[in-house]
């Protein structure tokens, strides 16, 4: 028996991780590292916690929206409404929670809940009514934008005091933005290790088989959409704190950017491959590009062109490596 059907496999770097994931994240890490080195060599003053904290603070709204996008992409979808959920939470934070000079700070819970509700609505359209994710979120994108404009018609409002305090606070000398980035990463690692985490990947990889394994694809997707809504909302809340004001039209810019971040990080748009970890690196990479362009006093177009090029290079590079790996595996 044991002599039968040999398995061909690649030499493995680590024991625990599938090969693909490790070269994938290594590539993203390498790009990120290169950008960090460039940025530091241009502005050596950046090498202290406060400065890094500010940089991460700039990145955080994009980070959270991209985390939301990653979750949806992992289950084989795409979410055009992340920007909408972002601005609704943003508006709620500066109008309801921040309104009245901070008398209703507990309403922050409502901002979270609104995010979950919007994500869940997306999920219901997709799992309940059978809409394609792209279509469902194309519709809710503009609906959520409209809701945000209803709550906050123009830029303005004030975030609640505790949020402003949170922005400038430190934990053992480490700025909260950095702490938050680490917390997001750890939360993801824990989630990944749970039963639910495994199911996210199974559903994304192959819905029919996930179903055969006794997983309720609907329920998993619904939960993922809800969770994505929460993440996008956190992004909006954070942005309110960082900007000390609300911007009900800020969301649209994040939609395609979050897709770019997910792809640069290395999560497959086909679903079931990648994760939040690489997305965090991708978001930081894009933020660094902007920072470098700013530091060099270059025009805006340089940073736009550089981001688009990075996207193309990463994708084309991955496609080539993957093709190579597949060939080697066949031999």
């Amino acid at each position: 028996m044991s002599s039968s059907a040999p398995t061909r496999r690649l030499p493995r770097l680590g024991v625990a991780m599938p090969q693909r994931l490790s070269w994938n994240s290594a590539l993203t890490a390498a790009i990120l590292l290169a950008l960090i080195i460039i940025d530091l060599s241009i502005q050596p003053a950046l090498a202290n916690l406060t400065q890094i904290g500010l940089l991460v603070e700039t990145a955080m709204p994009l980070v959270m929206v991209s985390v939301a996008q990653t979750l949806i992409v992992l289950v084989g979808g795409i979410d055009l409404s992340v920007g909408g959920m972002f601005v609704v939470a943003n508006a709620v934070t500066v109008v309801w929670v921040g309104g009245g000079g901070g008398a209703h700070q507990l309403l922050i819970v409502a901002a979270f809940a609104v995010g979950i509700a919007m994500g869940t609505l997306n999920g219901l359209l997709v799992t309940g009514l059978g809409f394609q994710p792209f279509i469902a979120t194309l519709g809710t994108w503009t609906i959520y934008n409209g809701i945000a404009l209803t709550i906050l018609p123009t830029d303005g409002g004030t975030p609640p005091p505790f949020l402003s305090n949170f922005m400038v606070a430190t934990v053992f000398g480490v700025p909260t933005s950095i702490v938050m980035l680490v917390v997001v990463f750890l939360a993801w690692r824990c989630l990944r290790a749970t039963r639910f985490g495994g199911r996210i990947y199974a559903v994304g990889a192959d819905e029919e088989r996930a179903r055969l394994n006794g997983t309720s694809v609907r329920r998993v997707k619904l939960a993922v959409y809800g969770l994505a809504g929460l993440c996008a909302a956190i992004g909006g809340i954070y942005a309110a704190g960082a900007d000390v004001s609300g911007t009900p039209t800020a969301g649209d810019a994040y939609i395609l950017m979050s897709v770019a971040v997910v792809v640069i990080g290395g999560t497959s748009l086909r679903g079931g491959e990648g994760g939040v970890g690489v997305t965090l690196m991708g978001a930081m990479a894009l933020t660094l590009i902007n920072d470098i362009v700013d530091a060099l006093n270059l025009n805006t177009w340089v940073s736009v062109a550089a981001s688009a090029s990075l996207l193309l290079v990463m994708v084309a590079g991955r496609t080539l490596v993957e093709a190579q790996l597949r060939q080697r595996r066949r031999r």
Binding site: A16, C190, R192, A193, T194, G198, R199, T215
Partner: peptide, 12 residues
């Protein structure tokens, strides 16, 4: 599949 238990990354 389906019987993962939540615990810390590598150990798990």
């Amino acid at each position: 599949y389906g019987s993962e238990t939540s615990a810390r990354g590598l150990v798990l």
